[in-house]
Each structure stands twice: as structure tokens, then as C-alpha cells.
């Protein structure tokens, strides 16, 4: 079976006139867990948004391939249907729409199969139990009045229900206390499998106490300055990002081929 999932090649993007991504190269295969670290403003969230197809972000160069198909021009909902999922740093509140109703609609859209109310209730209940989420959340309005931790758990719940092939988790651990971080990390572990892949974006490595990534990338100034393994994350923890800013400058003329 083909393990190849995502291939990003020389990706550049801008918002209005501001250039943010500056030539990203990245390959992600099924069964892998990638961590992208980087200082504030490096373009981490932008990368997540560009991969999902946010309308404000324009691709100015490069390609995003998903399962061998170029998805540069694909609409947001169609990307989701292909199996891409974004866990938001700041999930939107949608008053008047219950978690259950929303997720049933989303599951129907993503799976292409009508979800019966009864069967879906079971599915949701099962996933909520898996993630230790109180059943009463099903009837609450989506993210409305949720605490930061509840919103992040709800994102993981959505991921568990929608079963994407590629999940991009944007700052999933930010703003969470130790217990909440642990719960979210446990949730991610439960969903992770040989058939899917995850990219976790973070600017500190609290969550790495619980998750063991296959790859760690350092994103600075809109480019991946260095890729490595867990040791790279530990080095960043000790020394920060400063030296990678310099390296980016040193290498800024060389475009890697992919």
C-alpha cells in the first residue's frame, strides 16, 4: 500500500501583500507523527491554514500534493472530504448549532454516507467515552461558552469522529494546563494509527512529554530551517530558535529541490 500522503514543494504564500511562507518543503507518510516548532510569527499557523485552504491565504508558488494529487486550487470542504483535518488554535463559536448536529452533518459530508440519528449517537457516545468527554457536550452549542481546554478537546473529538487521513493540529497544547495537555495528548494517541498521519504545530514542547514524534521540524521565517528527531526538540528546549534564524539567512539563496 502506498504510504505517501502529503508532499509540499517550495510552497510560498501571502496574505494581502505580505509574504509569509517562503519555500516550504515537507513530506508526510501514513503512520507518521510530525512536530513543527518555531517562534511566534514564523508562519506555523499560516502553513496549517494554507494546507486547509483558508481563503485569505494565496499560494504564490509551489505545490501541495495530497495522495499524489495537486490540491492547490481545491476548495476547503473538498480538502476535508479527501481526508485533511485542521484542529484550530482558536476554534470558532457557532451559537445555535449543537455539537451533535454539527458533527453528524460533517460526518455525512466527509464520509459521503447519510448518518442515521440513532447510529450516529452511538458513534459519538463511543468517541466521547474514548476521550473522557461528558456526554452532555453533545447537546451544547458548538464551542459556545467552552473553556480553552474544552475547545481543544472538542477539536480532538471532531478528529476522532471524522477519522481524517491527515490531521494538522495547530497549537493544540497552547493555553492548556498540565492535566488538559495530558488529556489532549492521550486523545491524539488514541486516534493515531498506521493509516493516518499527524502534524502537530507547537511553539513549546510541553506536549512532547506525552507524544513521541517521528520527525521534528523547525520553522523559522516561513521556511523549514532544520529537520530532525526528538533530539532536535530537546536542543530547541535548551537553546531556543535564535541560531536557526541565522541559518535561514545563510541558506536563503539555495532552493532545495523536491
Amino acid at each position: 500500500m502506498d504510504k505517501k500522503l502529503l508532499k509540499i514543494c517550495n510552497l510560498e504564500s501571502k496574505v494581502e501583500e505580505e509574504k509569509i511562507l517562503n519555500g516550504i518543503n515537507l513530506e508526510v507518510n501514513k503512520g507518521e507523527l510530525h512536530i513543527i516548532m518555531g517562534p511566534n510569527g514564523a508562519g506555523k499557523s499560516t502553513l496549517a491554514n494554507v494546507l486547509m485552504g483558508h481563503p485569505e491565504h494565496k499560494i504564490t508558488n509551489g505545490d501541495i500534493e495530497f495522495e499524489g494529487e495537486n490540491i492547490n486550487q481545491l476548495a476547503v470542504d473538498k480538502r476535508a472530504k479527501k481526508g485533511i483535518f485542521l484542529s484550530f488554535q482558536y476554534p470558532q463559536e457557532i451559537p445555535g448549532v449543537t455539537v451533535e448536529n454539527f458533527l453528524r452533518t460533517a460526518k455525512t459530508a466527509v464520509s459521503g454516507e447519510q448518518q442515521s440519528i440513532f447510529d450516529f449517537k452511538f458513534l459519538l457516545e463511543e468517541k466521547m467515552n474514548l476521550l473522557n468527554i461528558d456526554q452532555s457536550y453533545a447537546d451544547r452549542y458548538l464551542n459556545k461558552g467552552f473553556s480553552g481546554g474544552e475547545k481543544k478537546k472538542n477539536e480532538i473529538l471532531q478528529m476522532a469522529v471524522l477519522e481524517p487521513k491527515l490531521a494538522i493540529l495547530d497549537e493544540t497544547d497552547s493555553g492548556l494546563d498540565v492535566d488538559a495537555t495530558k488529556t489532549v495528548a492521550e486523545g491524539i494517541k488514541k486516534v493515531a494509527s498506521e493509516d493516518n498521519a499527524m502534524i502537530i504545530i507547537t511553539h513549546h514542547n510541553k506536549i512532547l512529554d506525552y507524544l513521541k514524534p517521528d520527525y521534528v521540524h523547525v520553522l523559522v521565517d516561513g521556511r523549514i530551517a532544520k529537520s530532525g528527531n526528538m533530539e532536535l526538540a530537546e536542543e530547541i528546549e535548551r537553546e531556543g530558535f535564535a541560531k536557526y534564524k541565522k541559518e535561514v539567512l545563510d541558506e536563503s539563496n539555495s532552493k532545495s529541490n523536491c
Partner: peptide, 21 residues
């Protein structure tokens, strides 16, 4: 964008927000 990122079409996303409203 948030709703569309879950596979919901733009039309249905807007309808959903309006119904919620």
C-alpha cells in the same frame, strides 16, 4: 471556514450559521 474545514459546503455552512442564529 471552520465549518467548511469539516467537509461542509459553503452553502450549507452559511445555512447552518443562519439556522443557529
Amino acid at each position: 471556514f471552520y465549518l467548511m474545514s469539516r467537509g461542509i459546503s459553503e452553502e450549507e455552512a452559511k445555512a447552518m450559521i443562519v439556522r443557529g442564529f
